[in-house]
Computed example of a mutant assay.
Amino acid sequence: MNMDVAQSGLFPLQRCKIVHLLRHAQGIHNVEGEKDHSAYMSPEFFDAHLTPLGWNQVDNLRKQVKACGLSGKIELVITSPLLRTMQTAVGVFGGESCTDGVNIPPLMVENTGHSGRPAISSLNCPPFLAVERCRERLVENDEDVLWKADVREANEEIAARGVKFIDWLWTRKEKEIAIVSHSAFLFYTLQAFGGDCHPIVKEEISRYFGNCELRSMVLVDRSLLGSETSSCNYPGKISHADEKLARKEKTYLN
């Protein structure tokens, strides 16, 4: 394929989804890991919470998604079940702070993860779903389906898990989905895509995510994994029965 020639393509809208990929904001493990990379392997930081800087990153991104209208388009937020991703997901896409007199269950209670933050409401926001398959590779719970004794998940295993997760998205009816996950999961999953694109596009797809970085992509169903039909396609003609009925009505009116 000549990558210097425009390679435009078309694809049926009903076989596409828009996914907004987001890495969690800065966690306490990121701070310690920058000092000593081995800290990432410490059980102490397995379920790290966000730092004050991480919460500032969340607040800034929340303003951005509201300003650009994205917050009103997202139909579902999927998050890793770890604390730092759930804090990021709720902080960015959740409702406003809870107020007295409004009897709505909170998405996040006050001071979750020693955050010092007020509770966040579930009012006027999309549904949230914590999914094990998009979590970080460091797993220590022996009841976890992804756990292996004394074995850290290999990069190839992360990629395979990520591809299965992407395929699973086609079982969902939502067309525009936010996914909040981790650097390794996002990086190695996206490495599996873009091989048929220009190298610059491939790099745009698979480059490393910074803390609280959001990137939006179109997901295409090339293998009919989904079974969606278009809600806006129109055949442009009436049926034979409708045509006969129209003739009868015309005769009656005459």
Rank of each mutant, 00 (worst) to 15 (best):
M1C: 12
M1N: 15
V5K: 12
L13G: 06
L22T: 03
R23P: 03
H24W: 01
G27F: 02
I28E: 00
E32A: 15
E34Q: 01
S38W: 02
A39W: 07
A39E: 07
S42D: 04
P43V: 08
F45D: 12
F45K: 12
D47T: 13
T51D: 01
T51K: 00
T51F: 06
W55E: 06
N56S: 06
Q57F: 14
Q57M: 12
N60F: 04
R62H: 07
Q64R: 13
L70Q: 03
G72A: 09
P81F: 11
P81E: 04
P81Y: 06
P81A: 04
L83Q: 08
R84W: 12
R84M: 13
T85D: 09
T85C: 04
A89D: 07
G95Y: 09
E96P: 03
S97E: 12
V102A: 09
I104A: 08
P105D: 05
L107G: 01
V109Y: 04
E110S: 08
S115C: 13
I120R: 01
S121R: 04
S122W: 09
A130P: 15
E132Y: 04
C134M: 15
L138W: 13
V139Y: 01
D142A: 14
W147A: 13
D150P: 05
D150F: 09
E157N: 08
I158N: 03
R161P: 06
R161V: 13
G162D: 00
K164L: 14
I166L: 03
R172Q: 15
E174G: 08
E174A: 12
E176P: 10
I177K: 03
I177P: 01
I179F: 01
S183M: 10
A184K: 01
F185H: 00
L186H: 01
Y188F: 15
L190P: 11
F193L: 05
G194T: 11
G195L: 04
H198P: 01
V201I: 10
I205W: 02
Y208R: 06
G210V: 10
M217N: 05
D221H: 11
D221E: 07
S223C: 10
E228W: 15
S231D: 15
S231W: 11
N233T: 12
Y234W: 13
K237M: 13
E243S: 15
K248W: 11
K250M: 14
K250I: 15
Y252L: 12
N254P: 10
